[in-house]
Design a protein around this nucleic acid. Structure first.
Ligand SMILES: [Zn+2]
Ligand SMILES: [Zn+2]
Ligand SMILES: [Zn+2]
Ligand SMILES: [Zn+2]
Lengths: 132, 132
DNA sequence: TTATAAATGTTATATTATTACATACTGTTA
DNA sequence: TAACAGTATGTAATAATATAACATTTATAA
């Protein structure tokens, strides 16, 4: 059962915007879009983004410096994330595959490191772009 | 067998610096370090980095905006990369695990996407930092 | 209530990366 | 050799991404 996070005003404005977007959003594009709601400075955006990532409501696509809403109802924190990214149309989806997540969550090697988090990004061509 | 790439002057200067570094290097730190060798502008650094990534001599650690030399003699291109990152000391190593790479290279799901590349970053505490 | 943590507002600045344009070098082929 | 194509370089300006520092306000809980 998922802990309910009561988002603050700025967090809610920014989450709603990202959640409605069909594509990953960049911080300054978010800023531009929420200026009419009174959020005027980059730091206000980055603070909300940091918190939303921390509680797993959004994830950062590291290779794109962009943010998407969590598409798995189960991500309470952003600690085990996998995405597919089309290099042609830049469509991004969160991969929800229990075998993959089990495999990676249980991964260990001889380095002696204790892994507590991972982020995986797959790149390729989506169905649409392949057939062009 | 690995194709021999004849690095250009700037590419060689920058690769040698990264290769000697025990930690991932950031672009502007690289710039600072190669100024005595005549490389004066960010673009000169970024161009060499782009090429070195393309041919697999270095990889970008996306979550850190930093670059490390390939630690696998086999990476001809940066298309199947996995790293372990200590969140305490920021030590980064390239993971070379054939089971993992096979698993990920063969991964496919029902989305219809054809994956041609991936990048995986594991986070946690290294041996040293765990025992502190 | 009092204390504490979390969130906000604001300005300035740091860090990372690209655009645009001119020039030079390297290897191939007519 | 000459012409060409592809790759690399040099330089200036600027765009895009992210954080520091400090003051204030709001929410939560002892
Ligand atoms: Zn998620
Ligand atoms: Zn596509
Ligand atoms: Zn490698
Ligand atoms: Zn460590």
């Amino acid at each position: 059962m998922q802990k309910e996070h009561n988002l603050s005003k700025n967090q809610k404005i920014i989450f709603d915007l990202i959640d409605k977007s069909r594509e990953p959003m960049k911080a300054y594009s978010i800023l531009f879009n929420v200026q009419k709601k009174g959020i005027k400075a980059p730091l206000q955006v980055y603070r909300a983004l940091d918190k939303l990532v921390e509680i797993g409501k959004i994830h950062k696509i590291e290779s794109r410096n962009a943010f998407i809403a969590c598409q798995n109802s189960s991500c309470q924190v952003s600690k085990a994330t996998a995405f597919s990214i089309c290099e042609s149309c830049e469509n991004v989806s969160e991969i929800s595959n229990s075998k993959l997540s089990k495999y990676l969550s249980n991964f260990s090697d001889s380095s002696g490191m204790k892994y507590s988090k991972y982020n995986l990004e797959f790149f390729g061509l989506c169905k649409k772009c392949k057939s062009k």
